[in-house]
């Protein structure tokens, strides 16, 4: 009725308080322990890398949306999440301008060209990393000493060393569990400290933002496959980017299946690929490519794992 001022809309009239921007900012919050660990082990350079990557991701998204006449949605924090994740999966000594280019690539190519938030097939941060690895392979595989170094690591020269997976694969040197757990190893900015990652992951699970289906099936599969091939499964869980990838990359809503069964299959697929790349691939680490390949399979996995409708009777052949 005119003038009544009553809002008429279709039910439900009540909603959860959880919103997309809230989830995204919670992801950023959950990444804080890993960020702090990165700064602790690799110094302020790590912080600059995070700032540059987040800044360029957000600016890229805002500019592209503005130019193309779309609503600017950087306030949903999704671009910031992408930028931050990219910063966490590059080496600490990577020149900042390369980080910026990776971040721009992530948003412009891997996200925006697909149609923006929710439409991209591949995880933008991982596409950014893959792009940088292909473009600047030397920079992307140069590893530095953590500030709080550990005596077990072989010194190549004054500042460089290798990641635990490289040392394992090519020199058969196994990093002690404690160093891997706390993060006193070489590696990407945010991947070295299992403890920090697990703290953040626990927060996301507690908040109900991620289910454990993908990370647990992913990690367990890596453990099982590496054990089957005679390697130490615990080492493979703690070393490299597995934990960061399993809890923060593979669980990316947009690029992983929405079906519960599909999520388990997807996690297992990621795990098999990562283990095989680590064991037999040309790279010592396979988390990035393992997840990206499974991203490509997400639509297919979903299609075959549509839940059985309640009351759906099995068709009699």
């Amino acid at each position: 009725m005119e003038g009544s001022g009553l809002i008429v809309s279709s039910s439900p009239h009540q909603h959860t308080t959880v919103s997309t921007p809230m989830i995204m900012s919670d992801v950023i919050l959950a990444l804080m322990p890993a960020c702090l660990a990165g700064v602790w082990f690799f110094g302020l350079k790590a912080l600059f890398m995070m700032a540059v990557c987040v800044g360029s991701a957000v600016i890229t998204e805002a500019v592209l949306q503005k130019v193309s006449g779309r609503p600017v949605t950087v306030r949903d924090y999704s671009a910031a999440v992408t930028g931050l994740l990219l910063a966490l999966v590059v080496p600490p000594d990577l020149p900042l301008w390369i980080g910026a280019i990776g971040s721009i690539f992530s948003i412009a190519i891997a996200k925006f060209t697909f149609g923006g938030l929710g439409q991209n097939i591949f995880n933008p941060a991982l596409i950014g990393r893959a792009f940088l690895l292909a473009s600047w392979p030397v920079f992307m595989t140069k590893w530095r000493w953590p500030i709080h170094e550990a005596s077990w690591m072989p010194k190549f020269d004054a500042i460089t060393t290798a990641t635990p997976l490289v040392l394992m694969k090519y020199m058969n040197i196994k990093a002690p569990y404690a160093n891997l757990f706390f993060g006193q190893v070489a590696g990407c900015i945010g991947e070295t400290s299992a403890l920090a990652i697990l703290l953040g992951a626990a927060y996301l699970i507690y908040q109900g933002h991620i289910s454990i289906r993908i990370p647990i099936s992913f990690i367990c599969t890596v453990a099982v496959v590496t054990a089957l091939f005679g390697q130490d499964p615990l080492f493979h869980i703690l070393a490299g980017g597995l934990l960061l990838g399993a809890f923060f990359m593979a669980t990316d809503y947009v690029t992983s299946p929405v079906t519960p069964r599909g999520q388990i299959i997807y996690g297992i697929g990621c795990g098999v690929l990562v283990a095989l790349i680590r064991l037999y691939g040309g790279y010592p680490e396979g988390v990035c490519y393992g997840i990206l390949i499974m991203n490509a399979a997400t639509a297919l996995v979903e299609r075959y794992t549509i839940p059985r409708k309640f009351g759906e009777v099995k068709k009699v052949a």
Binding site: S19, T20, T73, L117, G118, Q119, Y253, V254, V258, Q263
Partner: peptide, 14 residues
């Protein structure tokens, strides 16, 4: 009244 944002495929509806 909140305007809908893009679906992020979180799967919570499923």
């Amino acid at each position: 009244v909140e305007e809908p944002l893009a679906c992020i495929r979180c799967g919570k509806c499923v």
